[in-house]
Nucleic acid binder design. Structure first.
Lengths: 249, 249
DNA sequence: CGTGGGCTTGATTGGAGTCAAGCGCGGTGG
DNA sequence: CCACCGCGCTTGACTCCAATCAAGCCCACG
């Protein structure tokens, strides 16, 4: 837990940052980047580590540089729901709130690019590039959250799993620059339990449905976590969506 | 359907607008309001009327002045999920997108304060008060959406209904200035069917659970739509949440 | 007075939850 | 080195909550 290899070479230079053009800083010019660099620092968390607990103070906001994190809400009796999946370039925190509403947990090793909250907030006032981009990203997240509401409220267990895999496959292909189609392959960044918490299922049901999709040849497994999608359209056919939609892409 | 009484006296003067201090224009100064007035107009829709269809072009953005509208997503086989509930002061549309992603439907008579989209978008660039407020409102909506994800993914039918009623009661009390407590009373702005589409249930289950809450004395009904909550804490006890939380307030 | 929409209630079914057992693998310590 | 443990996962048997199918009520409206 305390031994943390660094797959991302921590680098104070924004210009060759892997998320330079997708993160909250995407529209910033050289001047603005310089301002940001003054209040920025990197942090790395091990898989499974909690980044912040719901209700705790958080004195920074951050972009995910590498890895995957989740936002989770917990009920008093222990029922849990993942309400956000944070992938590379996603933003964590609210610039004008110092407390977080959800547990933030690293599900793989995660590297964050953190900005001290107060200076970041002040900078936003005078930097439309920053707040415009944040508004755009927030609207996209809202669309993604609404897509999930449909999945949670109306889809069957099998459709939920297929939808989740399709989103991962698509985002993965997008990041890798490959075009969606045949033999997409990616690693599940979540345990079965975390998947169940995301999809509003039990972990047994997740396991059964993955087995079912495998049995029917929709996916192939290599080990427990490597997924191969021989025919992406076939997978899409299992999601219950009509062909296009793809708000989450 | 074409006969539309006007409960809100359409008035071009923002200064005595009922949502002046909560809507997207909340932080605008006199100058900025004047700019807005130049591109603003009112529209009223009857209960049940569709304001825009998913995928259609929308040449304005708008604030809800009075009434209740929903955002709905539909799957090819007809399954429907309400993904947003728009009450007074809520904002409709994305300033930099001309197509809407969801059906927007008036569930009561609705009056909108509309702004032509392009001038509104251009105005945002130079008016931080506008984009800051919109960012704040969008972040709040994102929190509300995440609260709903918990409800959809993890709560029982009874807890879903109780949660929904608690939110309406609270928002209603807030608007009326009353403090939450005893004998809160409000009108359901949705049919049982619309409620079922919001909560990821069938209309029969909604009906049964409302009957159950009534039988157990948690709520009283006057007609089909007037709800009386004799003891708000008792209702909260049925939601499954711990006492405080209240992100949606 | 008949019609239809919104709603309620009952009987039955079915999909996912629950409870339980066991596998496979990597890590640790004897 | 290997036996043991624990964690992540799978699978089976059974249960139960909400969906489905079906009938009928209430009331506003033509």
């Amino acid at each position: 837990m305390n031994h943390r290899p660094h797959p991302f070479k921590v680098n104070s230079d924004c210009s060759d940052c892997p998320i330079r053009h997708r993160a909250v800083c995407a529209r910033c010019d050289a001047d603005e980047l310089e301002q940001l660099e003054a209040v920025k620092f990197y942090r790395t968390y091990a898989a499974g580590e909690v980044i912040v607990w719901a209700g705790d103070a958080m004195d920074f906001v951050a972009s995910v540089v590498t890895g995957v994190a989740t936002l989770t809400q917990t009920m008093e009796d222990g029922r849990r729901q993942v309400v956000g999946l944070l992938l590379a370039s996603d933003f964590i925190g609210r610039p004008n709130r110092d407390r977080v509403a959800y547990d933030v947990t690293a599900t793989t090793e995660v590297t964050l690019c953190c900005f001290r909250r107060k200076p970041f907030h002040e900078m936003m006032e005078g930097t439309p590039h920053l707040s415009q981009r944040l508004l755009e990203m927030t609207l996209d997240e809202l669309d993604a959250a609404r897509e999930w509401m449909l999945i949670l409220g109306r889809k069957t267990a099998r459709e939920k799993i297929a939808s989740f895999l399709a989103i991962l496959a698509r985002r993965n292909a997008g990041a890798a620059g490959a075009r969606p189609g045949v033999n997409m392959r990616f690693e599940l960044p979540l345990t079965r339990e975390a998947m169940s918490e995301y999809l509003g299922l039990t972990l047994e049901t997740v396991s059964r449905q993955i087995s079912g999709l495998k049995r029917d040849g929709v996916i192939l497994l290599e080990g427990k976590r490597q997924i191969i999608v021989p025919d992406f359209d076939r997978l899409l056919g299992e999601t219950g969506d009509d062909a296009e939609s793809g708000v989450l892409a």
